[in-house]
């Protein structure tokens, strides 16, 4: 298994943009994806890939597969389905590069495809009914071996899996994929006000679920 590191994912990128916000001491994780992608360089790479440039196609796969896999896994809660959804998404991306509208950020387009693929995969799974709807994470598993930070992360993932899909997807896109509100509205085909409303509700529900999973230690996030 390859470990994915958000920062090393940009290693193969054609060029980078300096992050003023990082220099200002802000939450580096939150701003990194917003600022780290050089739109012109990415657009050039996507254009090259569309013309069949193997190196550019490999760069797209290397850069976006970890992001799509992470999103699919947390949407579907099942490694096998996530792998299938990731492969299907990335193949669609590579085959339909000519349909990409450069006025949108490439990541937004990719996550739009990933989201639709996850919805299809979820429906297929419901029809097959061969695997559980959600492979829930038991936050108590291995609790003794893990640090408090890891336990909190496990509880958060478990709480996310218990959220309705429409709440889960919007929180994944905002908190893990670090997309902007406007980009999320674009992916979900929703007005911005509705996106905000849904994020508030989703966060509120997530906090309830998270606290419900917390052991009686009085520790709060």
């Amino acid at each position: 298994m390859q470990r994915y590191d958000r920062r090393t994912a940009l290693r193969g990128e054609p060029s980078r943009v300096a992050s003023d916000a990082t220099l200002a001491g802000l939450d580096e994780t939150h701003v990194s994806l917003h600022l780290a992608m050089a739109p012109d360089a990415e657009e050039a790479a996507v254009c090259s890939a569309g013309r069949g440039d193997e190196a550019a196609r490999a760069w797209i796969v290397r850069t976006y597969t970890p992001l799509v896999h992470r999103f699919s896994l947390r949407m579907l809660g099942n490694e096998e389905d996530a792998r299938d959804a990731t492969q299907e998404t990335m193949v669609k991306v590579l085959r339909h590069l000519d349909r990409y509208d450069p006025s949108r950020r490439f990541a937004t387009w990719v996550f739009g495809i990933a989201r639709n693929t996850c919805i299809d995969e979820h429906r297929r799974r419901l029809r097959r009914r061969t695997s559980p709807e959600v492979e829930t994470v038991d936050p108590a598993d291995g609790a003794f071996e893990r640090t408090e930070r890891e336990q909190r992360a496990a509880r958060l993932l478990a709480a996310l899996q218990r959220l309705p899909p429409r709440y889960r997807e919007i929180l994944l896109l905002y908190h893990f994929e670090l997309l902007k509100y406007r980009e999320i509205a674009d992916i979900l085909h929703l007005p911005l006000g509705t996106v905000m409303n849904r994020i508030f509700r989703a966060r509120s529900r997530l906090r309830e679920l998270y606290l419900a999973l917390e052991p009686e230690t009085g520790v709060r996030p």
Partner: peptide
């Protein structure tokens, strides 16, 4: 401001299944 923000940042990214990137390029 989000009280769960620090917990979100504590979640590690899942490893990409081995061979997936190669399988994608071959399938495409």
């Amino acid at each position: 401001l989000d009280p769960l923000a620090s917990v979100f940042s504590a979640v590690e990214d899942p490893p990409v299944p081995e061979g997936l990137e190669r399988a994608i390029l071959e399938a495409a």
